[in-house]
Design a protein around this nucleic acid. Structure first.
Lengths: 128, 128
DNA sequence: GGACATTAAATGATTGTGCATCTCATGCAC
DNA sequence: GTGCATGAGATGCACAATCATTTAATGTCC
């Protein structure tokens, strides 16, 4: 990535495009094969756990992540369906929803994190 | 991008993830709004024209680009439906297909290129 | 020449995404 | 209080991407 800094906008964009797609594709495949979880599901779960808090509001989760609001909503729905998180009412603001990882969810995250890191290590250049 | 080189794998990946999504999203939106063309359609058309050749085989086009074979096939189909390219038999190898941009296709590409460049200029850091 | 692997491209099925819209809940003005 | 804008989240719809499969043409080995 960094070695291409001077090549002009288009070249840098294309580099970004292919790098992103390669990595995202590899992550998607390995996460799915090894843990039965998609990339965006992992990213959500990961951020949820790493926040350290027991529960997070959807809205706060959304600011952290690259997903659109509707994509986040569906991703959390999938995670819930799979028993990785629970959604709960928020007493203070009844429009809001709290999301918390379940124990299996935390566990899955820990396992998947290793696959995740391995794929990244393999695809992201050591340094410049 | 470059200023984050030392932050570790995960941080670099997240940076890539959000950068990519912001730019791709902006490109998609502006290309669609201003020229009625999607990002992958533009990328295909752009590479097709910039190759300098009158026609290219699908397979050669595929090596240049981040799209899967089936995605490319459908993207070209969309471009053809919109009159931006034509597909033709290849006499040498009757399995292969030639793709050529039409005049309106070239023209659209030239126009869209400016939008494309503008969005990139706006989102990709000048340099460091 | 015949059988089989390989290659180019298209296509069916499934899935995830974005946009627009909808439903409620809040907040604020009056 | 009523009325209206705004905010949080869910959902219908359309579309694009993937995987797996299919069709058809080439190549190869015997």
């Amino acid at each position: 990535m960094t070695q291409l800094v001077e090549r002009g906008l288009i070249a840098r964009w294309r580099e970004l495009l292919t790098t992103y797609n390669q990595i995202a594709c590899a992550l998607e495949r390995d996460l799915q094969d090894n843990h039965g979880i998609g990339l965006s599901e992992f990213e959500v779960l990961d951020r949820l756990v790493e926040s350290g808090q027991a529960k997070m509001r959807m809205h706060d989760l959304a600011t952290d992540i690259y997903l659109s609001q509707s994509a986040l909503s569906r991703t959390v729905a999938r995670l819930e369906r799979a028993g990785r998180v629970v959604r709960a009412m928020c007493a203070d603001d009844r429009r809001a929803i709290f999301v918390s990882p379940t124990e299996p969810g935390r566990q899955l995250r820990d396992e998947a994190r290793e696959t995740h890191r391995a794929v990244l290590a393999q695809h992201i250049p050591a340094d410049d």
